[in-house]
């Protein structure tokens, strides 16, 4: 069975470590915040200038001056700090964020990522995504393994305009956890009930399958 959005987030959350500063992109990455393992503390960075993002506010606490990068109203966690956009991107571009999780349209065997533009269809802009992929060392991309029409999103070469070149090392899809190294995809884990053959079929770029591939665990 392909993973649900929540299950993808839950598996990513296992990569969190106590004391991590984390930037979560819009969509599935945002859900990771709901699955932080018990006993560890992480601080969420929102690139519009907030470190220590809290939960959504109650109706009484809504504050137009306090939003996240998705322009949603939020609150501040204990120990939060506020800063301007240049400072925020100094954190990101300076490599101070421990883990970045973001979505994508395509990833390829060379670690290239396309996530912001579909020419002729979607040209809203890259926001902070190019800064995040260029500045972070530890990035996990979350996305579905293939499109609704069964076209692989794990490619030999990205076809859409790139967000970053050679910067992605880990991809978690609804079918598999994959590492990228030396110009190849490497299968690390498979979703429960999903066969290696299913994954191979839906992976267009070269995929290395080394020995028995374990099923994913979620806690």
């Amino acid at each position: 069975m392909a993973l649900s959005r929540d299950q993808i987030a839950q598996r990513v959350a296992l990569e969190l470590q106590d004391g991590y500063y984390v930037n979560l992109g819009i969509g599935i990455p945002t859900l990771v915040a709901n699955f932080v393992p018990k006993g560890i503390e992480v601080m969420l960075q929102s690139e519009n200038g907030l470190l220590g993002m809290g939960a959504f506010p109650t109706d009484d606490d809504v504050d137009a001056d306090l939003i996240n990068a998705g322009k949603q109203t939020v609150t501040m966690a204990k120990g939060a700090s506020i800063f301007d956009s240049a400072e925020s991107f100094a954190m990101i571009r300076g490599g101070h964020v421990d883990l970045t999780v973001l979505g994508a349209f395509e990833v390829d065997v060379n670690g290239n990522i396309a996530s912001y533009m579909i020419p002729g269809k979607l040209i809203k802009g890259m926001g902070g995504a190019m800064d995040l992929v260029a500045g972070a060392d530890n990035i996990i991309v979350t996305m579905t393994h293939a499109s609704k029409h069964g076209e692989s999103k794990l490619l030999t070469n990205c076809t859409l305009p790139l967000t970053g070149r050679g910067c992605i090392k880990k991809v978690l899809t609804d079918l598999a956890f994959i590492e990228i190294k030396a110009g190849k995809f490497h299968l690390l884990e498979r979703a429960p009930g999903v066969s290696v053959e299913d994954i191979i079929k839906l992976t267009q770029g070269e995929l290395v399958v080394d020995g028995d591939i374990p099923e994913m665990k979620f806690s």
Partner: peptide, 24 residues
């Protein structure tokens, strides 16, 4: 890119004509 945009403004205000970045 958002970080480049912020830095372009910061640098402009600080009298720095240009800067190198890995972004993009």
């Amino acid at each position: 890119p958002q970080g480049t945009l912020a830095e372009k403004m910061r640098a402009g205000g600080a009298g720095i004509p240009a800067f190198y970045t890995a972004t993009g």
